[in-house]
Every structure is written in structure tokens, then in C-alpha cells.
Design a protein around this nucleic acid. Sequence first.
DNA 1: CTTCGATGTCAACACGCGTTGGCCTACACT
DNA 2: AGTGTAGGCCAACGCGTGTTGACATCGAAG
Lengths: 196, 196
Amino acid sequence: MTEVVRRSDRTRSAILAAARERFAADGFERATIRAIAADANIDPSMVMRYYGNKERLFAAAAEFDLRLPDLGAVPRTRTGRVLVTHFLDRWEEDETLQLLLRTASTNQAAVERMQTIFASQLLPAVAALHPPSTEPADIARRAGLAAAQILGLALCRYVLRLPPVVTMDRETVLDWVAPTVQRYLTGTPGSSGRRG
Amino acid sequence: MTEVVRRSDRTRSAILAAARERFAADGFERATIRAIAADANIDPSMVMRYYGNKERLFAAAAEFDLRLPDLGAVPRTRTGRVLVTHFLDRWEEDETLQLLLRTASTNQAAVERMQTIFASQLLPAVAALHPPSTEPADIARRAGLAAAQILGLALCRYVLRLPPVVTMDRETVLDWVAPTVQRYLTGTPGSSGRRG
DNA sequence: CTTCGATGTCAACACGCGTTGGCCTACACT
DNA sequence: AGTGTAGGCCAACGCGTGTTGACATCGAAG
């Protein structure tokens, strides 16, 4: 079974790239099959041929891997900084995260994708920071709080474009936000962050 | 000039209430004039008569006042807790905030409304915590960070419905998030919160 | 009682959408 | 050269939308 490169593969990926761009920019409803097809320089009916319908095209475009590092392998006091840095990178190199954030407000499929990514990618990464005996609810809460902070930052920076949040350079963001995430991951409610 | 109560006022406000509900639940595009009119038990053309078009109806439905307390009047170490408490109340008693959060992802008007609310309501409230000589950029950054944390919490709790964030009771949320906001408002990047 | 504006209904328009099916074209294989 | 098939285009469908204008009804003022 050698992998044959079909001629259609180029078209398929052109459609997917255009779809990601349009969905990220306009959301699910306002991104039209016609516009996506035009961006990919093909006929709208091709989109249907390859992806069946708009929903399935969206599902394909919303496929996403956070590629989280192994948080257990970095110094415990630096996990917050590492995680926030990683997310900033990911936001800026792959528009799929913006796509999900934009569409999740109106699209149930996107919400479910977000929930899945949270449960299957972020949660295990946070769990790696704590002994197996730790209460699952504790770990889940920590992951949820970290997600809230990180997604809120992305929302204000990339979607709402609140001027002061857009202007802040990477280092400033890290200096302020990393300690917060650090506390959520390994600290206690009132404290600044260090704990066993 | 006595205020005359027109018979149409009931209809107007019925439309507005239905519009808020639909926009909050479905977003701008999927909330249809027909559905809103049906909820208000009137004809779709009435909506046009009273609000002109869908955009203006949305603008009317998205009118919002945060009703922020005077942060200068509460003990300095409790501003974080007060602010987060106030937002939790506001989220739950007035669906307009959810409406804005949901629609801002796809609707430019909602984005601008959010930016305006930030600049004209949150920013001054934060400014009241600092001497007039404070750098405006510093105040804006603090307000932006607080907004990111609070909106991220709302996003995960009310829109994405991440289970651990939904489950957390009010007190737990406050114990974790209030110190963060406190630090953003009055602390320094690395610290836990107290400063002049 | 008549009149007239405010309030509300009905039917229809034009448009853009997702989606479909038939047709054309190019290329690999015999 | 002939043929089968994958890749691609075109024109059209049915539908729901925002929006419009003509018509009905109510309630107060003359």
C-alpha cells in the first residue's frame, strides 16, 4: 500500500486552507461555501464533493492539536511561563485556535471541539504536574482556571482587540500572566504560587 | 412635557426583550427577525417599523451599563474581590453581557460596543484606584488584564461550558480569581498583590 | 357618528445561501 | 487510437432571509 499522491490532494488542501481562513475571519454562518471555493479557485460543488456538506467541512477545518509540551519535564516553578509562551506561539502560528474561539460562541460543534481539546489535551498535561493520588476535581479545577485566563487573554487580544491588551508586548504579557497561570497550576487560592 | 405612555411601548419592549434573548442564545446571524417577532407575539414588519433594520435592533439590544461600583470607596485590598463579585452578579442578572460576549466573535458592532464599554466604564473605574499622576498606559494595562481574566472566566463558564469551570461554586471562583484581579489592579507583575 | 393617525396584519419581493445533477475535460492504461 | 475514470465546471433547485408596501382595525378627537 504505497501512499499515492492524488491530483485532487492539492485541491483538498486548498479548500481546507481557504475554509480555515474564512471560518476564522467570519465565523461559521458568514463564511460561505461560495466564498471559500472562490478563495481556493474552484467551483463550490467541489467543496461538496470532497467534504459532503458545510458541517463536515467545518469539522475538518477545526481539527486541532495543541502540541502541549510535557509539563512534568520542566522546572516546577516555570510551568506557568512555559504554558503561556506555548499558547502565544500556537495562537500566532496556527489560525485554527482563533477559528475555534470565534466560532465557539455560535456553533455547537465548535463548543464541543473546545471541550474535547480541554479534556483530552490540557487536562492530562496539568495532571502530569501532580501525584496520581491527587483529587481529579482539583486537577480539573486548576486546568479550568488556567484555560479561563489563557482564553480570556486571547479573546481580548485577538477577537475584541482591546487596545491595551493588543499593545502589550510578549514579555510584558508573560510577566503579568505567567504568575497567574503558575498559581492556578501549582499554587493555592490565596498564595503567590509555591507549593509541593 | 408629561411623559405619555404610548400603547406601542409595550410592544417595543417586548421586541427588545425577545431580541436580547434570541441574540444571546443564537448570535447575530442565526437570530432571525421572524423568530424574535414570534417570541414577542407580533408581526415581523413591526420590528422594522420600530427599529428600522436588524442592525439597529441589535444596537438597541446591546445597550449596556456595567453599573460598576466606585472602586475608590472600597478597602484597597478588597477591590479584586468586589470587582469579580460584581461581574458574577451582572452576568447572571442581565443577559446582555452574554449577548455581547457571544456576538462579539462575529459581529463588528458588538466588538466596538465591547471596546466602548471597556474604555468608558472599566477604565475609569480602575483609574480611580491610582493617583492622577499615574501613567495612563499603566492604568490601561491593568484594566486590560483584569478584563482578560474576567471575560475568560465568563467565556469558559457561560459559553464554552467547560465542566470544571461550570461546577465551581461562587466562593471557590472568588477564592481563586479575586487575588488575580487584585494583583492586576494594584500589584506588580511578579508579586501577590500589596503595593502603594 | 365620522375622521384620522397610531397600531397591527398579510402577502410578496429580491437576494444569497447550501446543495444537486448533468455535462465537459484530461489523463492513465490497453 | 480508444476507453474508462477521476477531476472539474455550470446552471439550477428550494429555502429562508431581511425588507417592503398595501391593507385592516382600534381608539380618541371633532
